Amino acid sequence: YPTELTNADGDKVCIGHAYQYSLVVGEMQAVFEGDKIAECGGRPHYLLSNDIQVSDGIVTTYEPIKTALEDSDVFSFVEPDAELQSMLQEYQGKVEEFSAEVLAQVPQQICSQEIDLPRRDGCADIMSSGAHRLVAEAFLNSVPEADFAIQNGGGVRSGISQGDFTVGDAFNVLPFANTLVKLELSGSEFKQAMEEALAYSISDGGSTRAYPYGAGIRYSVDLTKEKGSRVSNLQVWDKGSSSWQPMTARATYVMVTNSFIAGGQDGYDTFYRVSERGRARNTGIDYAQSLVDYAREQEVLKRPQEFATQSYVPVGDK
């Protein structure tokens, strides 16, 4: 820490990343020669309180653990600031009040169960994920001019329990600081992006959470085939005729997705290139807020029965 790279001119570049939600404070030290960096250093500070509790049966004494954490050059023990704690408590009460608002009723549990994982008890015995489908439907509800919506697997972090669905639940399902982005792209560009994401999902350095889930679109996936041939039978829901129509390579479509993959993350490189060419617009709508609005309008969130993935052949079936 930090990571040292070089830019296109061969100059040193130092990159520090401090994790998320203020859990870690990043410390960067840099020495300059003129306007260029000569050397850099620093460390992350993972903040811990002094009243850490040790799980039963893990260790018999706490002090050796604390000593090891202090010597790690990563963890730092801090005392809460009383004045700041008092200020935060006021805001915490407002957050709790805001989060408790009931938006809708959920007759049946709607699970987040990604396509490559075993089906879970209490969830519908389906190939795809109900929670991901619902999120994609919420995207389309917030951006009705879009033809279809795509959500990557990793962006949905919780299922939806039976009973009351609250504002807090919506932000647990979609906890990141993503916004909704509209992209204008051709059918061939969309297929290319899908192929990229699927290749990333099964690559050594990638993640299965890149897998695409959607609404207003459907497709078949066969991961045993070569890159470029893994996605087939692409169809888009035509609102005018209320029917599924084949996606054509040269036709232009409007897609709504989250800002994370619109920026090319999780292997969606073509989405990034489309954005760089000026064919993207960030709506400014928080992606969790889209789920809040959708749930409030629906009043009842039903377990989805239709999914974007029509058939799926995993790598292991090759």
Rank of each mutant, 00 (worst) to 15 (best):
I65K: 10
G57P: 06
G316F: 00
F77R: 11
Q113T: 14
P212R: 03
P64T: 06
C40K: 07
C111M: 12
V102R: 12
A251E: 11
G42A: 06
S158Q: 13
P64D: 09
Q113F: 06
T179E: 11
Y62V: 14
A295I: 03
G159K: 00
Y19H: 14
S161N: 14
E63A: 14
E39C: 09
T67L: 12
K302L: 07
K66M: 11
Y200S: 07
I52Q: 12
N7M: 06
S259I: 09
A149V: 01
G153Q: 00
V256Q: 01
L234S: 05
F77G: 02
V31N: 09
L134R: 02
Q310H: 01
L223G: 05
L134V: 06
A131P: 05
S49H: 15
K191C: 07
V95L: 13
Q109N: 15
V156H: 00
P80S: 12
I58S: 10
F307N: 01
G278N: 08
A30H: 02
G263E: 10
L117H: 12
E97W: 05
Y46S: 14
R43C: 02
D56I: 10
G240K: 04
T248I: 09
V74D: 08
F271K: 04
Q265M: 13
A30S: 10
G316R: 05
C111A: 12
A138H: 08
A18I: 04
S128W: 01
G41K: 02
K66I: 10
L23E: 08
E226Y: 10
S229W: 07
L291E: 05
T61E: 15
S76C: 10
D125K: 12
Y21F: 13
T252F: 05
V59N: 06
A199M: 14
F32L: 15
L5R: 14
L291A: 02
F307I: 03
A18K: 09
Q289P: 02
E189T: 06
A295G: 06
V24M: 08
V313Q: 10
K94A: 14
P118Q: 02
Q105G: 14
A38D: 13
Y253C: 03
T3N: 14
L69F: 12
M247N: 01
L301W: 11
I15C: 07
E299G: 04
E96K: 07
Y287K: 00
G263R: 07
S232E: 08
N282T: 03
Y287G: 09
V24D: 08
S188M: 13
A170E: 02
G122E: 05
R250C: 05
Q289M: 11
A104F: 04
R209F: 14
Y62A: 14
T67R: 13
P175M: 05
N172T: 15
I150P: 00
Y1G: 15
A82R: 09
P314N: 04
Q53P: 02
R157K: 04
N152E: 01
G263N: 13
T166Q: 04
I202T: 13
T208N: 10
S207W: 15
Y213D: 09
A215F: 00
G57I: 03
V25T: 12
G205I: 12
M247Y: 01
M28R: 10
I37H: 12
P44K: 09
R218D: 04
K225T: 09
S243K: 05
Y219Q: 00
A131K: 00
E226H: 09
G155Y: 04
S158W: 08
V254I: 14
S275F: 07
G42I: 09
V313I: 15
A149Y: 00
R281H: 13
Y219S: 00
L117S: 13
V95I: 12
F307L: 08
